[in-house]
Every structure is written in C-alpha cells, then in structure tokens.
Amino acid sequence: MNVKEPSATDEFIKGLWRENPVFVQVLGMCPVLAVTNSAVNGLAMGVATTFVLLMSNSLVSLLRDFIPKQVRIATYILIIATFVTIVDYAIEAISLDLHRALGAFISLIVANCLILGRAEAFASRHKPGAAVLDALGMGAGFTLALLCLGGVREILGAGSLFGLVLFPAGFEPWIVMILPGGGFFTLAGWLLLINHRRQRRERAEAAGGPLQEAGR
C-alpha cells in the first residue's frame, strides 16, 4: 500500500488530463462520436454525463460497505439508470430542442462504460470526498474532450462555433465533418496529436534531459 495520499488537486487533474477518459483511456466512445456534431451538443452531453458520474460516484462510495460483492454490478447499473432517467426528464423540461438533438443518446449514458468503470474501479474503494473529486475530474476531462471534438467538427463542418458564424460567406463547409465519418476522423486526429506529443516527451526523457528540443 502506498502511504502517500494523493492531494485533492491531483485527484482532479488526473481525470482532466493525465488519465483523460477519452484521449488516454479511450472509454465511452459512443456518445463522444455520436453527439459531437456541434459544440453545444458536446457541451450538453458532457455536463449531463458529469452530473450522472458525480451522483453515482458519491452514492456508490457512500453505500460501498452495504452493497454485497456478488450483486454490485447490478446495483451500480440501477443507481446509474436512476440518475440518467432524472437527467433525461430534466433536459426535456429545460430545452426541448436539445432533447431532440441528443435523442436516445441521453438514455444511452447508462451504457457509457466510463461511469460504470469509475464506480467499480474508484468509488467502491474510496471515501465519498475522493470519489466526488474523481467524478468531477473525470467529468471535466470528458466534457473537455467532447468540446474539443464538437468544436473542431462544427468549425470545419458548419463554419461556426456555438452557433456564431466564423467565416465569410465564401466559405465552403466540409459537410463530411458533421456526418458520422467526420467523427471518426476528428477523434483520430486528436489521438494522433496526443500520441505525437507523448512520444516526443518520452524520447526527450530517454535522451536524459527534461523536455528539450534535441536539434529537430
């Protein structure tokens, strides 16, 4: 057992960047690709997922001593499904347009392996405080990733960001970016960028120095 407890900020930053659920762990792909054809949709999906993650993580953590080991997965699923139903009805009440744009993908948050994964791997073994921080970090990381994807796809595919027109009228939008294929390409692009940065850092570390451009 490691004696050193990770600090609160560390717990948060971990999810946001170092173990980013989408870019590093490649979890929860379905909503990531499906609803990110605009930045607003991506943001809404990210916030909804963060809420469910936060509630389920804290509840699982609070109940971790009471849930029998054999039925824990089923219990987690029930907890998650309850909060997803709440989110579904809340979004329908707040904005009908958004509800229509996200469609069945709000309900599909249940099947997001990220949430079940955090409940099983983290919340069931840690105190509520840590579980809340973990959920906030992971949720923020997930939202960030959705925004990155949604932003790129909306800028290239529709020539706008959050509905604001960015380019002059002569701009020919890349329709493919808001179609399903564009989702795959954009995510592949981000992964390439992140892989490239990581490999450069690893090479620099292997060469002995901290991040220094070694004559390249």
Binding site: L179, N195, Q199
Partner: peptide, 22 residues
C-alpha cells in the same frame, strides 16, 4: 507510422468505412 499505431489508425479506417456506407 509509429504515432498512428493502435486506436488512431483503427479510427481512420472506421471513418473511411463509415463514408463508404453512406
């Protein structure tokens, strides 16, 4: 290429397949 190994190249392939299915 080294950077594209793993998920990245699989996603590019999936994107092309998706375009074909359109």
């Amino acid at each position: 290429p080294e950077v594209a190994k793993g998920s990245a190249i699989a996603l590019v392939v999936a994107g092309i397949l998706s375009m074909a299915f359109m």
